[in-house]
Amino acid sequence: MAGGKWMGWWGHLGAAKQRGIVTYTLSPYEQRAFAGALHQAVFNTFRRVSGQAFYIAVPMGLAYGVFTWGKENHQWRLSKEGHALHGDH
């Protein structure tokens, strides 16, 4: 009670009932929170990865090329021919 007047339950504070307010509800048994989530995840992941592939593939290709060149050059420099051309250690 507030000021000697009962104010009603929460949300019904003694005012006149409002008209024209429509409330919609959906049963929890009808909701599908993860409907299509796996399908969307697969295609969204593919779209995002394919969009970034150029930015990843080119530097990795260059790094692989430099790495293989370095290994071959190192092996060549350890050979007799490499020693003869560049001198001994």
Rank of each mutant, 00 (worst) to 15 (best):
I21M: 09
A16K: 08
Q40Y: 13
A2M: 07
V22Y: 04
K80T: 13
Y55L: 10
Y64Q: 14
V22E: 03
R47G: 07
L62V: 11
N44Y: 11
M1N: 08
K17I: 13
F54S: 07
S50N: 03
N73C: 08
S79V: 04
A63P: 03
W6A: 09
G61N: 00
L78F: 06
T25S: 14
H74I: 05
V22F: 07
S79R: 00
G82W: 01
T68D: 10
R77F: 02
I21N: 06
T25C: 05
A57N: 03
E30I: 04
H83I: 11
H39N: 10
G51I: 02
I21C: 06
R47P: 00
L78I: 06
D88S: 06
V49I: 08
Q75K: 12
L26N: 05
W69L: 12
S79M: 03
G14I: 01
S27W: 01
T45S: 12
W10G: 10
H86G: 01
P28R: 03
T68M: 06
G36K: 01
A15N: 14
F43G: 03
Y55F: 10
G65P: 02
A33T: 12
V49C: 04
K71F: 07
A35W: 00
A33G: 06
L13S: 15
A41G: 03
Q75H: 09
A35S: 06
G20E: 02
H39T: 14
M60C: 09
H86N: 11
K17T: 15
Q18T: 15
K80G: 10
S79N: 03
V58G: 02
Y29N: 12
E81L: 08
G8L: 00
R48T: 10
F54R: 04
A41D: 00
L62S: 06
G61T: 00
L13F: 13
A41M: 02
G65Y: 02
V22D: 03
W9S: 15
Q40W: 15
I56F: 09
W6E: 04
K71M: 08
M1P: 14
A15M: 12
T23K: 11
H83L: 09
K80I: 09
Y64K: 14
G3P: 02
L38D: 11
M1C: 11
V42G: 01
A33R: 13
A2F: 10
R47N: 08
K17D: 15
F46V: 15
Q18H: 13
K80L: 12
D88C: 04
Y29P: 00
G11F: 01
G82L: 00
T23Q: 13
Y24E: 14
S50R: 14
A15D: 15
G51N: 04
W9N: 15
G8K: 00
L38C: 09
P28W: 02
G14D: 02
W69H: 08
V49T: 10
Y24R: 09
Y24A: 11
H86K: 09
Y24F: 10
A35G: 04
F54V: 10
F67E: 08
G11R: 01
A41F: 05
G87W: 00
I56V: 14
R32G: 05
L78M: 14
L62R: 01
V66H: 07
T68Q: 13
V49D: 01
R47V: 07
R32C: 05
H83F: 06
H12L: 06
F34I: 00
Q31C: 08
G70C: 04
G11V: 02
A2N: 10
F46H: 05
